[in-house]
């Protein structure tokens, strides 16, 4: 489970002064649920997710992931999450197998379990043809599969996806969406950040709309449509971020 309570992050910039990357963001994600975090570029999605992933320390509020506080127990939080972002890349000079194994070892997996897990993931994600190929020789789709395998090598309870389909072709993006859906089916707690409305419509059980660092609205797709009076999620989103509808 993920719980964010008034989660706030303030950045201090010499030129621009104080910037509120996330402003009192609160939400809760239960196991077996996909929570969609929707927002335009720079809305505060990545900052919020980086705080949940313990990559950034909150300046206010609190959050817990899989029962562990993100500030007090960052190592335990990281041990229980799989974090996949468009910006999380692969080591070009390692093979896909070496990449997955490296992270497995960093997650504290023993060699025998790791070998078995890589075999299972290779089968599940159809990676057999390129498992021993260097990452810089892989196609975008192959790279993304390797990233997915890296993310779930330790079989985490919680999965955080930050715009995972950014820059991907249609087929690869579809494969990722399908994979995220499977994660829900396995009872994982999933947060999915995107600014692609169609993906959110296909995937998310609950959607939170974030704008200028603050969570402006939250609810199921049906609830958001009802609240804004719009049939289309994109229209609902625009209405909410431009102040046409209240949370």
């Amino acid at each position: 489970m993920i719980e964010a309570r008034l989660l706030t992050k303030v950045f201090r910039d010499k030129k621009r002064g104080e910037i509120r990357g996330a402003d009192k963001v609160s939400f809760r994600v239960e196991p077996g649920m996909i929570y969609g975090l929707l927002g335009a570029n720079g809305a505060g999605k990545t900052t919020t997710l980086r705080m949940l992933g313990t990559l950034l320390k909150p300046t206010g509020g609190s959050a817990s992931v899989a029962g562990h506080d993100v500030v007090a127990e960052p190592d335990r939080v990281r041990a229980n999450i799989g974090f996949l972002a468009a910006s999380t890349a692969l080591y070009a000079r390692l093979t896909a197998r070496e990449m997955i194994a490296y992270f497995g070892r960093l997650y504290g997996m023993d060699e025998r379990t790791l070998r078995a897990r890589i075999g299972a993931l290779s089968e599940e994600l159809d990676m057999g043809d390129f498992l021993d190929r260097r990452c810089d020789k892989l196609s975008t789709g192959m790279k993304q599969k390797t990233s997915v395998a890296r993310t779930i090598v330790h079989d985490p309870q919680v999965l955080i996806f930050d715009e995972p389909t950014l820059g991907l072709d249609v087929m690869t993006a579809r494969a990722i969406v399908q994979f995220v859906r499977q994660c829900r089916g396995r009872g994982k707690t999933v947060i999915y950040s995107t600014h692609v409305m169609s993906e959110a419509e296909k995937l998310c059980d609950v959607v939170g709309i974030i704008h200028e660092g603050a969570l402006r609205a939250e609810g199921t797709l049906a609830e958001l449509r009802a609240r804004t009076g719009e049939a289309d999620l994109e229209e609902s989103f625009v209405k909410i971020v431009t102040g046409g509808a209240a949370a």
Partner: peptide, 14 residues
Amino acid sequence: ERGTMETLLCCPAA
């Protein structure tokens, strides 16, 4: 620059 630092920092290693 290559974006692997964020990948690495996601793991529980100190």
